[in-house]
């Protein structure tokens, strides 16, 4: 039988560990870990720090696995966009199949460890969130509907729910509200970004809201979601899940979020030379908003817990 021998010149260089790390979207993971940790700390049950660390590690591994699967599937689209063409696969530093195997491996490991060491319900929700992001969102709905961001928001909303369930072992109203807050926050956050990187998404053929429904409609929808986010962010306080520290912080943070959204919602692009400053401000503030809101939640819970203990 003939043997095929590959010369060193004919083989591309293998992907390095940094490429695999980049495949997990570390920036997104930091937000996932943060909200997951907040869900875990905000839960009314204390778990051993080693178990808490393991639960957060599983959430991070699961998110990393889902991100790798997302990049495996979207490699061709990524190559068409300035923001994503430097990623390991479109840049030619990694083979698609390596990304797929890495994604499946990380996802399987995360669910397995969560199920064995934390609890079954948390593992089931983690598995569902990975399938939701990698299959329902990335493969099925993202290329088909301009509502992709609304649906994708569900994937990003799972971490606090998983963190809470990892600590308590069951689902209650509070983690569902936390899920809903991130779900409602996602459309204004991403559509603000889509407004100033619109041409890139158009080039890749992704039906983002500004390309399909137009800028005016997108701006109105940004306002609508922000109006809904304001009372929703106060629900944890109204249902008695948190105290005034969270309630006041949420009112102030969401009020500013709404003000910035109204500014974006009531203006029009002033030609090609428009720097899109209000849209950029809303996008960057939305990141600060989520971190600040969940920090307030944790601070409130810790202070409340200390008060009860005293």
């Amino acid at each position: 039988m003939a043997q095929v021998s590959a010369t060193p010149q004919s083989l591309p260089l293998p992907a390095g560990w940094r490429d695999f790390y980049a495949l997990t979207k570390p920036g997104v993971i930091s937000l996932v870990v943060f909200t997951g940790l907040c869900g875990l700390i905000a839960a009314p049950v204390r778990i051993h720090p080693v178990l808490a660390f393991t639960a957060i590690l599983c959430i991070a591994l699961g998110a990393g696995g889902a991100a790798a699967l997302n990049q495996w599937w979207e490699a061709d689209l990524d190559a068409k966009m300035k923001r994503t063409k430097g990623r390991p696969i479109p840049d030619g530093r990694m083979e698609k199949i390596s990304a797929r195997d890495f994604g499946v491996g990380l996802s399987a490991a995360s669910v397995l460890i969560m199920g064995l060491m934390i609890n079954l319900l948390a593992a089931v929700i983690l598995l569902f969130s990975i399938i939701y992001y990698a299959v329902i969102y990335t493969i099925w709905l993202k290329p088909r509907t301009p509502q992709n961001i609304v649906i994708g928001g569900g994937a990003g909303a799972f971490p606090p729910l998983i963190g809470w369930v990892a600590a308590t072992g069951h689902i209650s109203l509070m983690p569902i509200v936390l899920f809903a807050i991130i779900f409602m926050w996602t459309p204004p956050h991403f559509w603000a970004l889509a407004l100033f990187v619109q041409t890139d998404y158009e080039k890749a053929g992704i039906p983002m809201m500004p390309n399909v429904a137009g800028e005016a409609s997108t701006r109105k929808q940004i306002m609508t979601y922000s109006v809904l986010l304001l009372p929703l962010s106060l629900v944890p306080w109204w249902i008695g899940g948190t105290g005034a520290i969270y309630g006041i912080s949420a009112a102030l943070l969401s009020g500013l979020f709404l003000a910035l959204s109204i500014r974006v919602g009531t203006r029009r692009r002033a030609g090609e030379s428009d720097t899109m400053k209000p849209e950029k401000q809303l996008f960057f503030y939305s990141i600060v908003y989520l971190f600040a809101l969940f920090t307030a939640l944790v601070a409130d819970r810790l202070i409340l817990a200390q008060g009860i203990a005293a």
Partner: peptide
């Protein structure tokens, strides 16, 4: 040698 280095690091 670059390939060997990358694989060793991995």
């Amino acid at each position: 040698s670059q390939r060997k280095q990358i694989i060793a690091k991995r």
